Amino acid sequence: MAASAHGSVWGPLRLGIPGLCCRRPPLGLYARMRRLPGPEVSGRSVAAASGPGAWGTDHYCLELLRKRDYEGYLCSLLLPAESRSSVFALRAFNVELAQVKDSVSEKTIGLMRMQFWKKTVEDIYCDNPPHQPVAIELWKAVKRHNLTKRWLMKIVDEREKNLDDKAYRNIKELENYAENTQSSLLYLTLEILGIKDLHADHAASHIGKAQGIVTCLRATPYHGSRRKVFLPMDICMLHGVSQEDFLRRNQDKNVRDVIYDIASQAHLHLKHARSFHKTVPVKAFPAFLQTVSLEDFLKKIQRVDFDIFHPSLQQKNTLLPLYLYIQSWRKTY
């Protein structure tokens, strides 16, 4: 089996927390979720979201995140109150960019949308954001926290390059993509939290790379249903696996070995980020709550012996909000 052949990389499970039942964490995340308004986002309300009498641009960002990046939404709820709305805006910006690729039928249209967001970032730093909910909220975040323009532009530029429907040539190319998107998002989150620390940035770099790799793995069944495969070609070739094997949902050992190798790289990034947690300011830990969902996925895929098409991998963990709150309460990542 794939797991038994390579099992030495995987460390002990961390979500089991001995003695936790003896201490009762304060009510927090679930209460916040219940208090949030929840009407559906419609095209009509989106168009009017920044106008008078609408929910408001902040509510639009929150709803977009809740629907399109639920794990990011849950993590954002546990940030300090003064930072929450800015991170909602930042993550909503990322969602807007991420959904361009799947929402257009022609690359030219995707490039036009990316050009809109490039100009939007430029206009935000000229205090002239367009009348668009996410743009307005992002402008507020930039003004409030003096966010670095370079990180925002890196996210747009990398998403634009990724409009080509090509597999990553190697794991390094996937890591570079993750660094310029997910890690950049974390650098900006640290700025919102008021953290300027080399060790925190180092952790953000590795956690962002782990996030990018896990996202690529999780999306494999969806991409396969659209006749697309984006997994690193070098690892596929190493194990003699073709793109057609993934399109046919082949579950042979060599296919699972490909998934094992890729998942192991995410695991190593996560492990390395945690190896120097004592040197990272505690104030930075809330920015890294996504490690909970990353670890949850890596454990699940290990349990199914790296069968990327196993139905259990597509099921939401209903206990994730609780695990996130516990992680926040324990002040760790």
Score class of each variant (00 low, 15 high):
45 S>N: 09
47 A>W: 14
48 A>L: 15
48 A>S: 15
50 S>H: 14
52 P>L: 08
52 P>S: 14
52 P>M: 10
53 G>V: 14
53 G>I: 14
54 A>S: 13
54 A>E: 07
54 A>M: 08
55 W>E: 13
56 G>R: 15
57 T>L: 14
57 T>F: 15
57 T>Y: 14
57 T>A: 10
57 T>C: 13
58 D>Q: 14
58 D>W: 07
58 D>L: 08
58 D>N: 08
59 H>L: 10
60 Y>W: 08
61 C>L: 12
61 C>G: 07
63 E>W: 11
64 L>V: 11
65 L>F: 06
65 L>D: 00
66 R>G: 04
66 R>Q: 07
67 K>I: 11
70 Y>L: 09
71 E>P: 06
73 Y>M: 08
73 Y>I: 03
73 Y>L: 14
75 C>N: 09
76 S>T: 11
79 L>C: 15
81 A>M: 15
81 A>L: 13
81 A>C: 14
82 E>Q: 15
85 S>L: 12
86 S>M: 05
86 S>R: 02
87 V>L: 10
87 V>W: 04
88 F>C: 14
89 A>V: 03
90 L>V: 10
91 R>D: 00
91 R>C: 03
93 F>W: 15
93 F>Q: 00
94 N>P: 00
95 V>G: 07
96 E>Y: 05
96 E>I: 09
96 E>H: 08
96 E>A: 09
99 Q>V: 08
100 V>H: 05
100 V>T: 14
101 K>H: 15
101 K>Q: 15
101 K>G: 13
102 D>Y: 06
102 D>S: 10
103 S>P: 07
105 S>M: 13
105 S>Q: 11
105 S>D: 15
105 S>T: 15
109 I>V: 12
110 G>Q: 10
111 L>Q: 09
111 L>I: 12
112 M>Y: 15
113 R>S: 07
113 R>M: 06
113 R>A: 06
114 M>L: 11
114 M>R: 04
114 M>K: 04
115 Q>K: 09
115 Q>P: 04
117 W>V: 02
117 W>E: 02
117 W>R: 02
118 K>E: 05
118 K>Y: 05
118 K>L: 04
118 K>C: 04
119 K>D: 13
120 T>L: 06
121 V>P: 00
122 E>C: 09
122 E>I: 12
123 D>P: 00
123 D>Q: 14
124 I>E: 00
125 Y>M: 07
126 C>H: 15
127 D>V: 03
127 D>T: 06
128 N>R: 14
128 N>Y: 12
128 N>W: 08
129 P>A: 10
130 P>K: 04
131 H>N: 13
132 Q>G: 15
132 Q>A: 12
133 P>Q: 09
133 P>L: 05
133 P>E: 08
134 V>W: 02
135 A>V: 04
137 E>K: 04
138 L>W: 00
139 W>H: 14
141 A>S: 10
142 V>T: 10
142 V>L: 06
143 K>G: 06
144 R>Y: 09
145 H>W: 08
145 H>C: 10
146 N>M: 11
147 L>C: 04
149 K>W: 04
150 R>Q: 07
153 M>T: 14
153 M>E: 09
154 K>N: 11
156 V>T: 06
156 V>F: 05
157 D>A: 15
158 E>R: 03
158 E>P: 02
159 R>Y: 08
159 R>S: 05
160 E>S: 14
160 E>P: 03
161 K>R: 11
163 L>W: 10
163 L>M: 08
163 L>S: 06
163 L>I: 13
164 D>R: 09
167 A>K: 04
170 N>S: 13
170 N>Q: 06
172 K>A: 14
174 L>I: 07
174 L>S: 01
174 L>Y: 00
175 E>C: 05
175 E>Y: 02
176 N>F: 13
177 Y>R: 04
177 Y>C: 08
178 A>I: 00
178 A>N: 01
178 A>L: 01
178 A>R: 00
178 A>M: 00
180 N>A: 15
180 N>S: 10
182 Q>S: 14
182 Q>Y: 15
183 S>G: 10
184 S>H: 14
184 S>Q: 12
185 L>E: 04
185 L>G: 02
187 Y>Q: 04
187 Y>M: 08
187 Y>T: 01
188 L>M: 09
191 E>S: 07
191 E>D: 06
192 I>T: 13
192 I>C: 15
194 G>W: 00
194 G>Q: 07
195 I>T: 10
196 K>F: 06
197 D>S: 14
198 L>H: 04
198 L>T: 05
198 L>D: 05
201 D>E: 05
201 D>M: 04
203 A>Q: 00
205 S>P: 00
205 S>V: 03
206 H>K: 03
206 H>M: 04
207 I>L: 13
209 K>Q: 06
209 K>V: 05
209 K>I: 06
209 K>G: 00
209 K>F: 01
210 A>Q: 00
210 A>S: 11
212 G>A: 07
212 G>R: 01
213 I>P: 02
213 I>Q: 00
214 V>T: 12
214 V>W: 02
215 T>Q: 11
219 A>M: 05
220 T>V: 15
221 P>F: 07
221 P>H: 12
222 Y>K: 08
223 H>W: 13
223 H>F: 14
223 H>N: 15
224 G>V: 09
224 G>D: 06
225 S>H: 15
225 S>P: 08
225 S>K: 11
226 R>E: 08
226 R>V: 13
226 R>F: 12
227 R>Y: 13
227 R>P: 02
227 R>F: 13
230 F>M: 14
230 F>Y: 11
230 F>P: 09
232 P>F: 02
232 P>T: 05
232 P>Q: 00
233 M>K: 04
233 M>A: 08
233 M>C: 06
234 D>T: 04
234 D>K: 02
235 I>L: 11
236 C>A: 07
236 C>T: 07
236 C>I: 12
236 C>G: 02
236 C>K: 01
237 M>T: 10
237 M>E: 05
239 H>Q: 05
240 G>S: 12
242 S>A: 12
242 S>N: 05
243 Q>W: 05
243 Q>N: 04
245 D>K: 07
246 F>W: 09
247 L>H: 04
247 L>C: 14
248 R>C: 06
249 R>K: 09
250 N>I: 13
251 Q>D: 13
251 Q>C: 15
252 D>A: 11
254 N>S: 15
254 N>A: 15
255 V>I: 12
255 V>D: 03
255 V>Y: 09
258 V>A: 13
260 Y>S: 05
260 Y>Q: 06
261 D>H: 09
261 D>S: 08
262 I>M: 11
263 A>W: 06
263 A>V: 07
264 S>E: 06
264 S>F: 06
264 S>V: 13
265 Q>V: 12
265 Q>G: 07
266 A>D: 00
268 L>Y: 09
269 H>G: 02
269 H>T: 01
269 H>M: 02
271 K>L: 12
271 K>G: 14
271 K>I: 12
273 A>V: 03
273 A>M: 00
274 R>C: 02
275 S>F: 06
276 F>A: 06
277 H>K: 11
277 H>P: 04
278 K>L: 14
279 T>L: 15
280 V>M: 07
283 K>D: 15
283 K>C: 12
283 K>N: 15
285 F>Y: 13
286 P>Q: 08
286 P>D: 08
287 A>K: 00
288 F>I: 00
288 F>N: 01
289 L>Y: 10
289 L>Q: 08
290 Q>R: 04
291 T>P: 02
291 T>S: 07
292 V>T: 10
293 S>D: 12
293 S>C: 12
294 L>F: 04
295 E>F: 07
296 D>A: 09
296 D>R: 07
297 F>W: 14
297 F>L: 04
298 L>Q: 04
298 L>M: 07
298 L>E: 02
299 K>A: 14
301 I>N: 00
301 I>H: 00
301 I>C: 09
302 Q>S: 07
302 Q>L: 06
303 R>N: 10
303 R>Q: 11
304 V>M: 06
305 D>G: 08
308 I>E: 03
308 I>D: 02
309 F>L: 06
310 H>V: 01
310 H>K: 00
315 Q>I: 09
315 Q>T: 11
315 Q>R: 11
315 Q>E: 12
316 K>H: 10
316 K>L: 11
317 N>W: 15
317 N>R: 11
317 N>E: 15
318 T>A: 15
318 T>G: 13
318 T>C: 14
318 T>H: 14
319 L>G: 06
321 P>R: 01
321 P>F: 04
321 P>A: 13
322 L>E: 00
322 L>P: 00
323 Y>V: 11
323 Y>P: 02
323 Y>H: 14
325 Y>M: 15
326 I>V: 11
326 I>M: 11
327 Q>C: 07
329 W>A: 09
329 W>P: 01
329 W>T: 08
330 R>L: 10
330 R>H: 07
330 R>K: 12
330 R>A: 08
331 K>Y: 10
332 T>D: 13
332 T>P: 03
333 Y>T: 00
333 Y>R: 02
